[in-house]
Design a protein around this nucleic acid. Structure first.
Lengths: 184, 184
DNA sequence: AAACTACGGCAGGTTCGTTGACTTAATTTA
DNA sequence: TAAATTAAGTCAACGAACCTGCCGTAGTTT
């Protein structure tokens, strides 16, 4: 969408003080700008849908092998990234109910991918960690997504990546912004 | 993650030709760079999860009112963006089965949000469009996501938005890249 | 001692995705 | 023109992953 403004208010066609499009003095240009804004927002909806769809899809081949779903992958990812995470915190990250998490967590623990250890400070807590088997699986899943991401990052360049990060963090909730800030 | 390279190879500590970290001559720095890369990729997984989670969530309040789900929203969005879209094309965009789509499409048509017209060139086709009621609903849903997105765009700035676009398009599949290119 | 919290589990329900088989109508191909 | 293919719809059955509401146990806080 390059330089649509120029098409609406070509330089030299009017006195100097109205070279930039002005919504008040030129309702036509204002409407046009609003339209561009709107199209930009809708295009972003597309971007989020397709990028998320294809990114998550990348790991599905491996998950299918093991009869696991994406919920299992999400749990593995966040436990791997936060060793010793209490169940309540994981629930807060995933924003699902205890029962939904229990279903995937039970199978992950039973199959030896995730270990639970009693909290020292608060013995009610079950702190979650990946076993070696769990780490190995998480790594396999990660590798698939990594390829895709690495290619995208390399192609886009460092500046684009920084912009990507800024916009993505702006889209998410305040608490998620805080959480993602901890890691960087 | 600013300027970690400087910490590994401080300027002036070595002859000029090795100021930039070199994986071959300095395996320690190489391992460190690989680690940074990996952490960067995992951080991106977080970004995609949280941004998508909170972005899609934004419209849920309205969907709940009408007893619709996200599948309905996705259909409304892509039909609204592509008036006269044949069913097969919509299936290709959403990457779901005919039956999954039929379930939401039937209710959308029955409730008067979506209209089907017979294709002129190929009369087997049912071309999908939003009715006025459908457009109004799509707009309401869109407004919720728009606020969030607009704030993120405004905060991040135009350069960051361009970077965001580049990375997102890099993550998605080839055909999705082609599709998203059509609109811009 | 009472109230609260962390975790687990049960019962039952919804949304949204799946496969497979079959029909109708229209188009394309041999 | 007959046969094959395609667009769309439909039925039955299933599965993944979410939900609410309720209860129990153990540990912590007030």
């Amino acid at each position: 969408m390059p330089d649509q403004k120029g098409a609406v208010a070509p330089a030299g066609a009017r006195p100097a003080e109205s070279r930039l499009p002005d919504i008040k003095s030129n309702p036509q240009a204002g409407a046009n700008l609003l339209f561009l804004r709107e199209e930009e927002m809708r295009a972003a909806q597309d971007l989020l849908f397709f990028a998320y769809r294809d990114f998550t899809n990348a790991a599905d081949v491996i998950l299918d092998e093991l009869a696991f779903g994406r919920a299992h992958h999400r749990a593995l990812h966040f436990i791997g990234r936060n060793p010793g995470l209490p169940v309540t915190d994981l629930l807060g990250i995933l924003r699902i109910t205890k029962q939904s998490l229990a279903r995937v967590l039970t199978t992950l623990v039973d199959d030896g991918y995730v270990a639970q250890t009693q909290g020292r400070a608060d013995r009610r807590q079950r702190l979650l960690t990946l076993t070696e088997k769990g780490q190995a699986l998480e790594r396999r899943l990660f590798e698939r997504q990594r390829e895709r991401l690495l290619a995208a990052y390399r192609e886009a360049g460092a500046g684009a990546v920084e912009g990507f990060r800024r916009v993505m963090r702006g889209i998410m909730d305040e608490d998620a912004r805080r959480y993602t800030g901890r890691h960087s």
